[in-house]
Design a protein around this nucleic acid. Sequence first.
DNA 1: TTGACATAAAACCTTTTGGTATCATATAAC
DNA 2: GTTATATGATACCAAAAGGTTTTATGTCAA
Lengths: 122, 122
Amino acid sequence: MIGAVEPDAIQGAFRALADPTRRGILLHLSNQDMTIGEVADQFDITRAAVKKHLTILEEGDLISVRVSGRERINHLEPATLKSVSDWLGYFNRYWDDRLARLGDAIENHEAVESISPTGKQK
Amino acid sequence: MIGAVEPDAIQGAFRALADPTRRGILLHLSNQDMTIGEVADQFDITRAAVKKHLTILEEGDLISVRVSGRERINHLEPATLKSVSDWLGYFNRYWDDRLARLGDAIENHEAVESISPTGKQK
DNA sequence: TTGACATAAAACCTTTTGGTATCATATAAC
DNA sequence: GTTATATGATACCAAAAGGTTTTATGTCAA
């Protein structure tokens, strides 16, 4: 009965993140851009399989690709990862009240000093 | 060639989060505990399908279940969601330098005032 | 230009996934 | 004690996932 109450773009990202190889690829790309071959060297699967993973990461907007001659250079695209993090952020209040209040303070442009760094207030 | 450089527990959580129905269930459970039937009322699929989703959420440690008579009461388990958030947090520095420094400050128990709330320093 | 190299693309295979329908069982209500 | 209710458990199905192998294509280098 319910429609998804979330930005549609996030589905492709969550789908891409569900596979451990793809998460590993993201970690590698966070250090440096890589061609398909360079990525494939890091895993025990064929280049073709790696290419499929990279396609899914691209569909999820987690990476972008620049073609240079015969090479495809894969580059981490952090913006969509932030969307995912924001979605999870909805649950922040369940695991860290203090962090939630810090976040509120930032949102409201309040003085950060009003929150003690040593303990919970309120 | 590389082994996953991540806590093993996170895989079940990412797998569970990959499906939009399951993410919807988590949002519902964040408001209140629910039986299978109550969850199923919120979606256009059979109870059996909902039950499968709940099983996957439980396997991913995103929910816990308490049996009460003939009912199964499903309860959001935020701790694992935090693990997922922490994994994503690794990429924080790519999308928000200031927030990363705030986090560092908290970790190090430094004075929060050292970071201006109005703009980036350094 | 010839060969080596990086990738593309397609066909194919097995397992997992998301769903259904059906039947069984335990419990609550009357 | 019956009956309705909430869930469990199976069997089944189509599509998607994750992989491989093979064949083709464009590009760099000698």
